[in-house]
Design a protein around this nucleic acid. Structure first.
Length: 462
RNA sequence: GGCGCGGUGGCAGAGUGGUUAUGCAGCGGACUGCAACUCCGUAUACGCCGGUUCGAUUCCGACCCGCGCCUCCA
């Protein structure tokens, strides 16, 4: 088995991945708060860790991958109130939209999708444990985590308590013993959703759900936890505090964090308002183009998102699909082909998910396929498909890829076929002026013709 | 202020103590009735200044610039 190395935020370097139990790998990734459509920045961890999920499934017999849905949160409460709709209707709608969008990006569904509202009892139990062990306290209807009770609080984000308080945004509240303490449970007013608890009617703080759901579904200590860099502090730092202090163990072995999507060099975020919704992008670009763009940079690097990047992704995918399409000959991929363990694509991904390196290997295979004798093509085609599958790419039929429509008023394929037939007759009669006029007519309708030795085929321009 | 990340050719983006990926776009050629695809060839790089070294884009140090986090955030 090739050695898998992963960059661990805890150490700040790449480490060899050693599972807790090689028979059962546990992976958790922070999912969305469902009060809105997700933007392409939200999609980056989903796609990056989808590649990790695929890779782990290749390397180990069982992988349990959980990605939560945060369906109770103040932003949700506010959005539902603004819309005048029940919270459950809002969260159901955006949960479904999220799942549709991620499916369009060819992200596999996780093994488990726990919802926060279905685990409030687990959260209350965990908070009670923390209170019993002296790591949390009740105050004015709140339950708060006592960060001073944990000696190495700040280990993940590499900052001391003093450093944190130097920042001006710490919420100083009278009920806190210490300004850095964070909320585990907070009181709800009558018009806010709430659950009965030992601290009165209320709702959970932001961080406790992940810790509680991990403990419930994956265990007290898991292999890998992923998410965006902006979750390192406070979210993941506080998860560690909760998990370690409640269970008296380590919480996560490997912390993985993806870089940001930038717009004009600036972080894309809901608060900055410079985001691009996946849903809107999908109206213009196939999901695979978005996925390819996301995988074209290493997951920890910033990725500047632009029209140009998407056009390049489209062009590059086209060339890979051209290799599969061939030049008119029919090639059936070799049956039963399996990517070798030491295949370059496998090795690239095992090196901390080096997707750009893996993609460059796809090009190498595609070039070999283009140049190969007919006897060698089935194996190379199977190799290209298998390698791309590890990245979740090249999943369409090549002809369908080139013919996918982008608008409603496009020419139908019957009209196109009729014109192609007419052009073929014109060519046969050596009436090239007429043939070129038809090519021109179709070109203006966004249809590109290509003559192959097996006949003329067409594709739609984007 | 504290902590962290990064600056690679027109663009995107890996990587490496020497032979200097890959793609997109460009240029030249082959192929084609014309094209497209493909193939062959080709130009353009490692922020700045020092140091270590036979040799530095890579290691070390300083500097400049950009970005992020410091309790909303993927």
């Amino acid at each position: 088995m090739p050695t898998l190395t992963l960059h661990n935020t805890l150490s700040g370097r790449k480490e060899i991945f050693t599972p807790i139990d090689p028979e059962r790998i546990t992976l958790y990734v922070c999912g969305p708060t469902v009060y809105n459509y997700v933007h392409i920045g939200n999609a980056r961890p989903v796609v990056a860790f989808d590649v990790l999920f695929r890779l782990l499934q290749r390397l180990y017999p069982q992988v349990v991958y959980a990605r939560n849905i945060t369906d109770i949160d103040d932003k949700i409460i506010n959005a539902a109130r603004d819309n005048g709709e029940p919270i459950s209707a809002l969260t159901a709608r955006f949960t479904e939209a999220f799942e549709q969008d991620m499916a369009a990006l060819n992200a596999l569904p996780p093994t488990l999708t726990p919802h926060a509202t279905e685990h409030v009892g687990d959260m209350i139990g965990m908070i009670e444990t923390l209170v019993e062990k002296g790591h949390a306290y009740a105050a004015e209807g709140h339950a708060l985590f006592d960060v001073q009770s944990m000696p190495d609080y700040g280990r993940l984000s590499k900052r001391s308590l003093d450093d944190m308080l130097a920042g001006a945004r710490v919420e100083v509240a009278p009920y806190k013993k210490y300004p850095g303490d964070f909320v585990l449970w907070k009181p709800s007013s009558d018009d806010q959703p709430g659950w009965e608890s030992p601290w009165g009617r209320g709702r959970p703080g932001w961080h406790i759900e992940c810790s509680a759901m991990i403990a419930r579904h994956l265990g007290p200590l898991i292999d890998i936890h992923g998410g965006g860099q902006d979750l390192i502090f406070p979210h993941h730092e506080n998860e560690i505090a909760q998990g370690c202090c409640a269970h008296g163990t380590d919480y996560v072995r490997y912390w993985l964090h993806n870089g940001y999507i930038n717009i004009d060099g600036e972080k894309m975020s809901k608060s900055l308002g410079n985001f691009r919704l996946v849903r809107e992008l999908l109206k213009v670009y196939p999901g695979e183009v978005l996925r390819f763009a996301l995988l074209s940079a290493h997951y920890r690097s910033p990725l500047n998102f632009s029209e140009e990047v998407l056009q390049q992704a489209r062009s590059t995918l086209d060339s890979l699909y051209y290799a599969l399409l061939g030049r008119g000959e029919q090639v059936t991929p070799q049956a039963g082909y399996r990517l070798a363990e030491d295949h370059p694509v496998n090795l690239a991904l095992c090196d901390d998910l080096n997707t750009p390196e893996a993609i460059s290997e796809l090009h190498r295979i595609a070039a070999a396929l283009n140049k190969a004798d007919d006897t060698d093509k089935p194996a190379l085609k199977a190799e290209l498909l298998a390698a791309a599958d590890l990245l979740g790419l090249l999943t369409h039929e090549p002809s369908a890829w080139f013919q996918q429509g982008s608008g409603d008023n496009d020419l139908g394929s019957e009209d196109i076929d009729a014109l192609i037939t007419e052009r073929a007759e014109a060519k046969k009669a050596r009436d090239f002026a007429r043939a070129d006029a038809i090519r021109q007519q179709l070109d203006e309708a966004g249809i590109v013709l290509e003559d192959t030795r097996e006949g003329t085929r067409w594709s739609r321009k984007m």
